[in-house]
Design a binder for these strands. Structure first.
Lengths: 178, 178
DNA sequence: TCAATATATATCGATGCCGAGGTATGATCG
DNA sequence: CGATCATACCTCGGCATCGATATATATTGA
């Protein structure tokens, strides 16, 4: 997921590690901060795999920087990951949001729609957080307000996203206008 | 987070690993499935730390089971984790939901309210996912519908949770009635 | 002039998680 | 009677991440 974010940000423009760090922090950092010890090894992995190139430059404000450039290889890898994400990328909210942030880099609207449809299918399958044996339990059954809140919030979230998914899919499926 | 869930479920009743597996899967599995290779080592860790006891029993339907009992130690550990969660437990949605699922096990309403207040403070701090230099960018500025959706959904989610937090905190702060 | 701060990159040990694989039992069905 | 399935538990290699630590430079302010 971190690697996806790196590839995604570099798709727009070359960046150095420190800049990347602030952007990644803005995107997912308020939820789960990214440590230096995670970012730099990830950059190294991607460079070793030929997905990006590093070029040393004198630092603008201080120490010298290593500018990162996405290669053709890297761009293809980004598109692969966006077009055909793992199930976990669809279901896990953090991963899904990262995917969404860069989905515009898929050029074919049909590919984009396919990804959205997978998320739609995931959200539409009924799930309960708690069971009484095989029987799913509704929010109202819980005497404690916390589990009630859990279910209430989850419901509201799902509802908001479903609405957005439906309108966006409709727009993607009818590209005739404008 | 897995360990919190294990301690939380065992707080209600003794369970064997397989049963625990289905409950954990219901709680967080639709988002991020838990592998056997994660669950059993976690049980082992908790047992080694004296937080739970294992007792062999003949299996009800098939192979023998190892019943898991929460110890006094384990109960205290659960309460510690609930009362004084790490920042990541507050900010990361998956972790936060897990915490919420077992927050009722804190006996003091003031402790519960404190945890909710931390989440409230987190949600109230302004965050933007994307920046143009130092300037945060609003949803409307994005030409692509995916980043727009990202911000729209995030906003709706936050709104729903804030509403719930305010009403629940009000209820916790005025325990005079009933 | 010295300390602190922001910029900028990197390594390393510990840890938790994943996926694949392995073992065993009792029930059901052909 | 054998195959298959659901139940039930566990190990191990590999890997991503975290937190701590280290290094170096330019600016700012005391």
């Amino acid at each position: 997921m971190l690697e996806l974010a790196i590839l995604g940000f570099l798709r727009d423009q070359p960046l150095h590690g420190y800049d990347l760090r602030t952007r990644v922090a803005a995107l997912m950092g308020h939820v789960r901060p990214v440590a230096d010890g995670t970012l730099y090894p990830a950059i190294k992995r991607l460079a070793a795999a030929g997905r990006l190139l590093r070029k040393d430059e004198p630092g603008a404000a201080a120490a010298p920087r290593r500018m990162l450039y996405l290669t053709q290889e890297g761009q293809e890898e980004l598109e692969r990951r966006l077009r055909d994400p793992a199930d976990l990328d669809i279901s896990d909210e953090n991963r899904w949001f990262t995917l969404l942030a860069f989905l515009r880099h898929l050029t074919d609207p049909e590919d984009q729609a396919n990804v959205l449809r997978r998320r739609l299918a995931f959200l539409e399958q009924p799930t309960s957080f708690f069971y009484d044996g095989p029987r799913p339990m509704a929010a109202e059954e819980f005497p404690d307000p916390f589990r009630q809140g859990l279910l209430t919030i989850a419901r509201a979230t799902t509802q908001a996203e479903l609405t957005w998914l439906h309108t966006t899919l409709a727009a993607l499926d009818s590209p005739t206008r404008t």
